[in-house]
Amino acid sequence: MSNKVGDIAKSSETSNLVIEINNLSKGFDDLQVLKNLSLNLFNGENLVVLGKSGSGKSVLIKCIVRLINSDRGTIKVFGKNVNELKSKELSKLRQKIGFLFQSGALYDSMTIKQNLEFPLIRIKKKLTKKERDEKIEEVLENVGLTDTLHKMPSELSGGMRKRASLARTIIVDPMIMLYDEPTTGLDPETSSGISTLINDVQKKYNTSSIIITHDIECARATADRIIMLKDGDVYMEGNIDEFENSSDETIQSFFKEKP
């Protein structure tokens, strides 16, 4: 099943595919963003996707949850082709996928508690109010935000907002996590805190994750495997050492450019 990327030696522990993307293409008007891109995500791994801004990283993961409809190619999540799902099935599938948005996307008009309740009420319908409150408390503790329950998102700092947003994502126990630039715009210390959290989430909830970033430190801290996007396709694939020791100019510039 996994011989498509058989060259990456991880097959022993990751023989089962979670996301399988084949020949995905997507363009806007006359701008071709993704061209025949193929990519696999295996169970339990952290896959880091690197790429310059504007290279289509966000478009890629938005196609996975069908926030954007792709033009050509197939995307299979748990073996189901997302482009062929009816809206009910799609909704079911989305419940298994956690999506951390680049901007955090906390609901401005709601307190942190209401933000966390929002998906909980709608996805975990069976929970009682007490169970919900407990769950909210637990998740907030996990991301280190215990006393912000009744604050508005605008009252939190950038790092706290990211963490609150992460809490809202993991509260419904997703099996796949998609992180869109989780550390962008944060100071190095806060960034490394977020990277640690990403690893904690993976261990604790045994999720498979795609982490989009152009923060090399974050990639170092979290990646099991890295792919680099360029011109709408996978430019290189490997682990962190292979990337750092690469003599390829594009990759060198990427790894030296940023502090």
Binding site: K62, V65, L67, S91, R94, Q95, I97, F99, F101, Q102, S103, G104, A105, L106, Y107, D108, F118, P119, R122, I123, V172
Partner: peptide
């Protein structure tokens, strides 16, 4: 700010 997208992926 992607809040509408966030709503959509949380099945609302």
């Amino acid at each position: 700010s992607e809040q509408i997208d966030a709503m959509e992926v949380s099945s609302t």
